[in-house]
């Protein structure tokens, strides 16, 4: 292997074991240098570009929290006019994608711009101190959905954004996880080589916000897949094409018990009702996408 140029450079200020930082590296590995990145406000914008430093070695633009998709639309339209072939890639957090930027994303996808919108999903507003977003899963403890005597954390389930954007007529929609780097790279490559609009949602565990040790980032991401709480799949023109199957699906406890944002479910005693509800979410995912592999047991 020859010396590869790293397009997302060392020296950024992400926490040790940062899931989104790893996602950024892998995404740029996949897109290559012929890329223009549009970022929204978020953790990634803040840790990678404290002026005058920048970790990016590709053209990178940040405007506002809500308008990454609109900025990307303009860039794409301009490149088209100039007959240039750069990939236009938005890399935004889940707050900017699920909540604040929804209007601009909806517009860009409805107009059918040839862009790839990638959401690194760390399931809350981590940059401002862990406030809940539309991507926060059921029962997660955040600073705006605190668990206590009167609450067991976030009362609402996660928004199904891939389905919403598929309904906009997106060409290619996929979910991926940093726990499976090669799968993520392949999906990003497929997205940038497909005429858009395309959407990829990347599960990117946040050690600080979720409450686990930085060395466990990939292990936690893997557990989300193995328990069925996160499903990796690809959709082409609204049809689910490929789904990552799980051979022996683990109980959701394996995933919940390693994160501080779910610790209220285990103290003082195990909260059977709430954990059963989360298990039901995993079971519903498994049924919807058919992720369970039928392993024949030997008698």
């Amino acid at each position: 292997m020859t010396e590869e140029c790293e397009l997302f450079e060392c020296g950024h200020r992400a926490c040790g074991g940062c899931g989104p930082a790893l996602a950024a590296r892998l995404i740029l590995k996949a897109t290559g240098e012929n890329t223009i990145v549009v970022a929204s406000t978020g953790c990634m914008e803040v840790f990678s570009t404290p002026y005058p430093e920048t970790a990016w070695k590709v053209p990178w633009i940040h405007s506002l929290f809500e308008n990454a998709a609109a900025v990307a639309s303009g860039i794409e339209a301009s490149l088209k006019k100039q007959e240039r072939d750069e990939h236009v890639v938005c890399i935004c957090g889940d707050g900017a994608t699920f909540d604040i930027g929804m209007l601009c994303i909806s517009g860009a996808f409805e107009r059918g711009h040839d862009i790839t919108y990638i959401c690194y999903d760390n399931e809350a507003y981590m940059n401002t101190g862990i406030q809940r977003s539309g991507a926060t899963p059921y029962d997660a403890d955040t600073t705006t959905s605190p668990a206590g005597k009167c609450s067991t954390g976030n009362p609402r389930p996660k928004k199904d954004l891939p389905a919403i954007l598929a309904a906009h007529g997106a060409t290619y929609v996929a979910t991926a996880s940093i726990a499976y780097p090669n799968d993520l790279i392949k999906k990003v490559q497929r997205a940038v080589s497909t005429h858009g609009p395309n959407y990829i949602q990347v599960h990117a565990p946040c050690a600080t916000g979720w409450g686990f040790d930085g060395s466990q980032t990939i292990a936690v991401g893997r557990l989300a897949i193995e328990t069925g709480l996160w499903v990796n799949y690809e959709m082409m023109n609204g049809e689910v094409e490929r789904v990552r199957k799980v051979a022996h699906r683990k109980p959701v406890d394996d995933y919940l018990s390693v994160q501080k944002r779910f610790r209220h479910l285990y103290r003082p005693g195990r909260n059977e009702d709430e954990i059963a509800k989360i298990q039901a979410i995993a079971d519903a995912n498994a049924k919807k996408f058919g992720i369970d592999l039928n392993v024949v047991k030997e008698e």
């Binding site: 020296g11 990678s48 590709v58």
Partner: peptide
């Protein structure tokens, strides 16, 4: 435009 030199984050020895 507050443009910075590409990859200048290397100045920051983390």
């Amino acid at each position: 435009g507050c443009a910075a030199a590409p990859g200048r984050a290397r100045d920051n020895k983390t």
